[in-house]
Amino acid sequence: MNASTEVYRLIAFLVGLIAFAALNAAYLVWLERKVCGHIQRRIGPKEVGPYGLLQPIADGIKLMTKQVMLPPQVDPVLFRIAPALVLIPAVMSFVVIPFSENLVAREINVGLLMVFAFASVNVLGLLVGGWGSANKYAVISAARCVSQNVAYEIPMLITVITMVMITGTMNLNEIVMQQPDITRWYVFRFTASPLAPVAFIIFFICSLAETNRAPFDLGEAESELIAGFHTEYSGMGFGLFFMGEYANIVIGTSLATILFLGGWQSPVPFIPGGWWWFLAKVYFLIFCVMWIRWTYPRTTLWGLLNLSWKILIPISLLNLLLTGGMLKLMPLAGGAG
């Protein structure tokens, strides 16, 4: 592979990924409205296009044509860069996600590390947006978002470290390769870690909290803080926050899929694996995210921090110790351990 084709490949992938992120966000909104509609025993969008399928397009056009208001007191620089700070890291993280064996923009050895590096930038966007808005509700929201993200990165990273100990690599595609069928998915690999399903649940809860999804949507908390950090945003400023949020959900669920559910691999040997498996698993997890959102009330900041420090961190540490012990006692046959 020479240098120029590599550049073209990357550009093509980037364009594709941004398009994917945008379309995905638009249609996840549609899906969210449909899911919540049916959970609440109503239909959801239905007027624009069949099953309301054109609704996201109409919404997108509306958002793009709306004026981007700049309220008088805001910090103009911070206010403008915040939405980009949320969206760009999310899109960048897609670069290392293996949609299938070959469908990956750039396979790098520390892919997992890179995703988490970018995930940490996300919270900076929320902080900057909330601070720059010069709105008391937004500032409270920004403070909440930061403390929440900091608290939840710890159990999440401990869990990921456990997984890296098992897999022996940070290359996402290699992690997927190690899980060729359902019995060897890491969520069920009790030989590696007796608490594997618990680790999966911890990872899932943390990714909910990291992406500010209900029941951890303290930053948006519409009944307390109006709309939180994006209270002052209109038009596409708000649209970018929205896209960023949904892109982050996809990243979170993709990682869960890759680390625990075998990524693009088929669960059973007689059906070939591929990107469709990956998307099916990711969308199933996203459905669960929505299902959870439309079931539970919101936690408070104390409840959230209690959950993190008193439950998630001790259990993930226990998991780390147990896994370390297991790996020492009986090294994995399939994994690199």
Partner: peptide, 13 residues
């Protein structure tokens, strides 16, 4: 909630 998800809608269009 999943039980209600699969039940018919109750709204009138």
């Amino acid at each position: 909630t999943i039980k209600y998800f699969f039940q018919p809608v109750v709204t009138l269009q």
